[in-house]
Nucleic acid binder design. Structure first.
Lengths: 146, 146
DNA sequence: TATTGTTATACTCTATAACTATA
DNA sequence: TATAGTTATAGAGTATAACAATA
């Protein structure tokens, strides 16, 4: 409690605590992405596509935390840049199926070492056990319906 | 490990896990803020100012995860809207000291009940103990130097 | 010389509504 | 009627550099 209005300390506010933690983690990731001219959003899309294989755009939007209109625009440039392919689903023609290309996968591969180095640095400071616990709790939080 | 390039599952990727968890938590908060015509960034600034009292802009930028140029613009409108006051520090004239006003505090106060209801809903689903553990871990993560 | 903050600029994302095509 | 995705548009934030004032 503070003296002003009895709101919680910002460090015990989940939205702010999540944001601050993310900023700490993202700082070196942003350095990495800047070197390869790719935005955070594109990086997330590549990660999601690499993990899920060929999926429809709504799935990407959910998994990568992007709105469909944003995704439409971003995928257009990623397709032009040869990082993803898109095709109409033959069974349900409303759906567009998206897949990562070899060139897209190459971007992930080239940055794997840096990516791991960042993870390892965090693990070295937090400890594997705490990090796993944190990921478990985040996964649980992410799944709830507020 | 997935089949494509041996990257980690996105749910075990700290940047993505933090973002997804935040999106879950922010959904109802955004509903609340939309009702009062205030952006997430302004809400964070009000929270930080309410907690810290009168502080310089660099402190706000750090605590609310905003860049100084963004903060300059946002504070200009918040000052015009009577939510904060700004004055030059007399000892170090480079510094601008910012303070929340009663009107700004009123915004926090009016939304305190909704804010608490959201917290309580999360607590009801996660449990107090897990939530505290999560906040502890986030605080620890936020403080490391990657 | 370094630091605090502002301004300028270009870019990108967000949010919403309206729309098309398909189911 | 509902759903998947696109387009249009307005608004806001991001990132960087250049700058002014002060230390």
């Amino acid at each position: 409690m503070n003296t002003q209005s009895h709101t919680k300390s910002t460090s015990r506010s989940l939205p702010i605590a999540l944001l601050r933690a993310r900023e700490t983690v993202m700082a070196p990731v942003r350095d990495m992405l800047q070197g390869i001219q790719i935005t955070e959003q594109k990086w997330r899309i590549l990660r999601v596509l690499d993990e899920l294989g060929e999926v429809e755009q709504s799935t990407i939007a959910n998994e990568a935390c992007l709105l469909l209109p944003s995704l439409t625009r971003i995928l257009r440039t990623m397709e032009a840049d040869g990082q993803v392919t898109r095709r109409q689903d033959s069974r349900d023609k409303r759906r567009t199926m998206v897949m990562i290309t070899d060139a897209g996968r190459e971007i992930l591969k080239v940055n794997l070492a840096t990516s791991l180095a960042i993870s390892n640095s965090i693990e070295a400071q937090m400890g594997r056990e705490k990090l796993d616990k944190l990921l478990d709790l985040l996964d649980e939080l992410q799944a709830i319906k507020v």
